[in-house]
Amino acid sequence: MQLPESILLVDDDEAFRDVLGRALERRDFTVHKASDRHSALTLAGQHTPGLGIIDLCIGDESGLQVIEALASRYPDMRLVVLTGFASITTAVEAIKLGARHYLTKPAAVDAILDALYRDKGNADIDASRQPMSVKRLEWEHIQKTLADHDGNISAAARALGMHRRTLQRKLQKRPARH
């Protein structure tokens, strides 16, 4: 299989985007960097990259919308979601929308490339039998409610019975591991 030479990298964190971009360029990829949905779709239209690394939270925008748009326009493009705010809900939705894999930050460049080129899942992954913590369950519930309301924080806050600013504070915190 010939490896695509072009990668679309979408992340609103400029420092992270630049560091990952340089690491990919050292591996002989041409990297097209975008910081928002509009520039990502524009660059994809101009360059038609074979690979895409999409951050889940791009400022106030959802990377899931970028995944959906790219997967529908470029069905052969291999897409991976990279996020510091992983949840079961967003992982499932990302895969349904066209991502091949879903990785949490920090992720090594080799792990990202492996996910981009891997066509099958890994049945040998350790399936933990330990139940999730209450904090993690809350995080998952918030993410599901937010997804159910198309990322609208005000509507999700109303559905959860909490103030919008409270929900925004909870979303800024990193989720509990277990």
Rank of each mutant, 00 (worst) to 15 (best):
Q2D: 13
L3E: 12
L3W: 03
E5C: 01
L8Y: 11
L9K: 03
L9R: 02
V10E: 10
V10S: 09
E14G: 00
F16R: 01
F16E: 05
R17P: 00
D18L: 02
L20F: 02
G21Q: 00
R26H: 02
R27L: 08
D28M: 09
F29G: 01
F29N: 03
F29P: 04
D36S: 15
D36Y: 05
D36F: 01
H38Y: 10
L43D: 03
L43K: 12
Q46D: 13
L51C: 09
G52R: 02
G52A: 15
I54P: 01
L56M: 12
L56C: 01
C57L: 06
G59P: 00
G59C: 03
D60L: 08
G63Y: 06
L64N: 15
Q65M: 12
V66N: 11
V66I: 15
E68N: 15
L70G: 08
L70F: 05
A71K: 09
A71E: 06
R73F: 00
P75K: 04
P75C: 10
D76S: 14
V81E: 05
V81Q: 10
T83G: 07
G84V: 06
G84E: 07
A86I: 07
S87F: 06
S87E: 05
I88V: 08
T89H: 12
T90Y: 13
I95H: 09
G98Y: 11
R100A: 12
H101A: 14
L103G: 01
L103D: 03
K105G: 06
A108Q: 15
V109R: 09
D110R: 11
I112Y: 04
Y117N: 05
Y117V: 06
K120E: 15
K120Y: 14
N122T: 13
D124C: 01
D124H: 12
I125A: 10
I125T: 13
D126R: 14
R129F: 08
P131C: 09
P131G: 03
S133F: 09
S133D: 10
K135L: 15
E138A: 14
W139Y: 15
E140M: 02
E140A: 07
E140C: 03
A147Q: 08
D148F: 07
D150L: 08
D150M: 05
G151N: 09
S154Q: 13
R158P: 00
G161R: 03
M162I: 15
R164G: 00
R165N: 14
T166R: 07
L167H: 09
R169I: 11
Q172G: 13
P175A: 12
P175W: 03
